[in-house]
Computed example of a mutant assay.
Amino acid sequence: MSFFPGRDPEPGDACAVDSIETLIIPRTSDIGGLEVRRALPTAKRRLVGPFIFFDRMGPALLRPGEAVDVKPHPHIGLSTVTYLFDGKIRHRDSLGTEMVIAPGDVNLMTAGRGIVHSERSPEELRGNPLSISGLQTWLALPDALEEMVPTFANTAASELPVIGDKSVEARLIIGALHGQHSPVTQYSDTLYADIRIAPGGRFVIPANAAEERAIYILDGAVDISGETFPADRILAFRAGDEIVVSAAEDQAAHVMLFGGAALSSKRYIWWNFVSSSKERIEQAKEEWRTGRFDIVPGDEEEFVPLPES
């Protein structure tokens, strides 16, 4: 997704669990006809590892005549990771890529020095009710790769390793966990996993899984060290602690685990632009304003204008 016209997410109430550094409650707004909850960045927590934006799309059922329509818009200095639970989105970008993203696939678009893309409900599915549910996260690129050549890669759900037993199924999206390794490219140490815990089940997040770690609770509630946390919360954990995430005895839980190594320098964010340099962001703003970014083949007629502030 793109520019978020709502207020920033807020830190939650103080938490009694010592291993939880930050509790974040997402803010909700409408982007391109779809309800989106944004959990990162916040005033008190800008990043978790390289994760600098964390958006939950839906779940929603769009009526006939409604659709997701995020017009062409630019990015620099980051990778977008689109991961769907339900529905489909057609991705087009200025590299000439056209891809219908299916549930469970990993869509990794790396902007580097600059890319433009659009995200829309597939034309062939419009006119019928459309269900949509998923996540889009943004990963800030490390200093040495902020101006890399833009790239795009799609990894099918069948290629992702699965960790678990009869009470847990964890699909590893990016990185390494419990001896498994995802084939998805990472530009800095990154961890991202889709974890479903059966009623009464538990999942252990090792202390050394990543330097910085957090979970987003999608559905159900989880127990950590005797305290229960409901859905639509981010819990960012203290470094060096093993974390045990448990589901209630009568209800399954669905969480996303994410994090990685902390960046070596500060990142500035303005609209869809991320950079270690304020001057670079000003340059990108002027390039978009004056039409110097590339167009998106097959989606040339519309675009998102540069915000006024």
Rank of each mutant, 00 (worst) to 15 (best):
H181K: 14
V304N: 11
G164A: 02
Y83L: 07
D165Y: 09
S309Y: 06
P183Y: 09
G179E: 09
I132V: 14
G175I: 02
D189H: 06
E301V: 10
F273D: 05
Q186V: 10
E308M: 04
L172A: 03
R213V: 11
G179K: 07
E10N: 04
S29E: 14
L177D: 04
P41M: 06
E279M: 10
V48A: 05
M1F: 13
G33W: 05
R37D: 13
V48R: 06
R120F: 02
V17F: 08
F258S: 06
I195Q: 11
P142N: 10
I234Y: 03
G87P: 12
A39H: 04
G6E: 05
N272K: 08
R238H: 07
G201C: 08
D8H: 06
S265P: 00
V274E: 10
D294F: 02
G226L: 08
D13L: 12
S19K: 13
R238I: 00
P122S: 07
A253G: 13
A214I: 05
E211W: 05
L40M: 09
P9S: 10
I101D: 06
V244Y: 00
L47N: 09
P161C: 08
R90S: 07
I173L: 15
E282V: 02
E279G: 04
P11V: 14
D13R: 13
G49E: 06
L235D: 12
G164D: 09
W270G: 06
E301P: 00
G58F: 02
F229V: 07
F4H: 10
A111E: 12
A214R: 03
R27V: 00
L23N: 01
L139V: 12
F4W: 12
E169F: 01
A207F: 08
L95R: 03
G164C: 07
A239Q: 13
E282P: 01
G201M: 08
V17I: 14
V296F: 06
I25F: 00
Y192N: 05
E169Q: 15
F152S: 04
P142V: 11
M1A: 15
E98Q: 12
T42V: 11
I25V: 15
E302V: 08
R45C: 15
A284N: 08
V184N: 06
P206W: 09
V17P: 01
Q180F: 05
A221W: 00
F273Q: 11
R292F: 03
P307Q: 01
F258D: 03
A248L: 15
Q136C: 08
P11G: 10
G175N: 07
P5E: 12
R280D: 12
P41Q: 13
R63I: 00
F54K: 02
T80P: 02
D165V: 10
E300N: 00
I217M: 09
R202P: 01
I243E: 08
D219H: 08
L108Q: 05
L95F: 03
L135Y: 15
M148Q: 14
L23H: 01
S121D: 11
R92N: 04
R267Y: 03
I89M: 13
L306E: 09
A67T: 04
P9K: 04
S246Q: 14
V204F: 01
P64M: 11
A261D: 04
R213K: 15
A284M: 11
A156D: 07
G134Y: 05
F303D: 12
F85N: 10
L306A: 01
P122M: 06
G240V: 03
R38S: 14
E242K: 12
P72M: 11
P297L: 05
